[in-house]
Structures are given as structure tokens and as C-alpha cells.
Amino acid sequence: MTSIEGLSLPLSFTEGAKAEIDLAALVETHARLLFRVAHSVLRSSAEAEDVVQDAFVRVLEHRNRLNDIRDMRVWLTRIAWNLAIDRRRRIRPDQFDERFADDLAANSATPHEALHEAQRIRRVLREMERLPRAEHHILLLSAIEDLSTAEIATVLGKTESAVRALLFRARTRLRERLEKGGA
């Protein structure tokens, strides 16, 4: 376990300064993407920010191996994704969906329409949760347009063709279920 003496990192001065500079650059570059990744799972800004912080704590623990990582962006995304999935298991599935749906529907013309829109959005989120896990995950990650199919495949440990097939299947199944229930 990497230890931290006081408030400084246990590295030599130059290595410590370099590590801190690299960490700050990583946070500046990737924090917002990781936030969107975590939020897609948790639908809560506070929880998502916690996940992002946990992800960078992991980076701090593995800072000696940062040079071995080829694709930092995908590595960080994978960490944030796994942390978000773990955290999702500990909370009620729809704990934060109501507020997310209300925020999304808030731009509707009238309060009546906003109410109906929020109900429809909540139903979509419920049906998304009911999808098979792989399809659900790919649907969430594909919503974040910053990630390419190759990156999604790396994060989820699948091939690109599998990602494309699962995404198509997820959309089709979601639409069928919603139409059957009458959105």
C-alpha cells in the first residue's frame, strides 16, 4: 500500500514535483469526462464527483506505474466506470432518477407537460435498467459521445463488433419494451 507522509508524496523532490504536475494535468484533462461517465450510471452530481475523486485516488496509488499505461484516458475511464458500477449496487436503483428526470423535463413548456415528460423519462430509465447488463452498459457509455467504439470496447472488455451489435440490440429492445408498455 502506497503511503503518504504527512501531506507530501514520498518521492524525491524532482520526482514528487513531476508526479504532482502530472496528476494536476490528468485532473484538468480528464475530470469532466470521468464525471460524465460516472453520472451516466449514478445520475447524481454529488455521487459522480465522489467517484471521480476516488478514481484519482487510485491514480495516486498507482502513480509509479503511470509510465506503463498506454492510453491514460481509457484507463481512467475504466476505473471511473467500475467505481460507478460498484457504487450503484449500494444505492437504490431509482434513488436519483426522479431528480434527474425532473431536471430534464424542467425545460418543458408548461408544468403539466413537464410532469408528463418527467414520467416518460423515468419510465425510460427504468426500462434501461431492466435491459441485459451488457446492453445497458453499452447504451450508457455510447451516450457519452466523447468515447469512440474502440474505447468503449476496451472499457467493457469486448470487441468493437460486439459493441456495435449490442448497441443495436439495446436500442431495439428498449424501443420495443417502451412501445409495448405505451410511453
Binding site: 460524465r36 453520472h39 451516466s40 445520475r43 434527474f100 431536471d103 430534464l104 415528460e117 416518460r120 423519462i121 419510465r123 425510460v124 430509465l125 434501461m128 447504451l139 450508457l140 455510447s142 451516450a143 457519452i144 459521445e145 436500442r171 428498449l174 424501443r175 417502451l178 410511453a183
Partner: peptide, 10 residues
């Protein structure tokens, strides 16, 4: 609605 949800997440 599905597009709106996904856009909201994006």
C-alpha cells in the same frame, strides 16, 4: 424520449 434521456446523460 429515449433520445432526450441519452442527450441528457451526454
Amino acid at each position: 424520449t429515449v433520445d432526450r434521456v441519452l442527450a441528457g446523460l451526454r
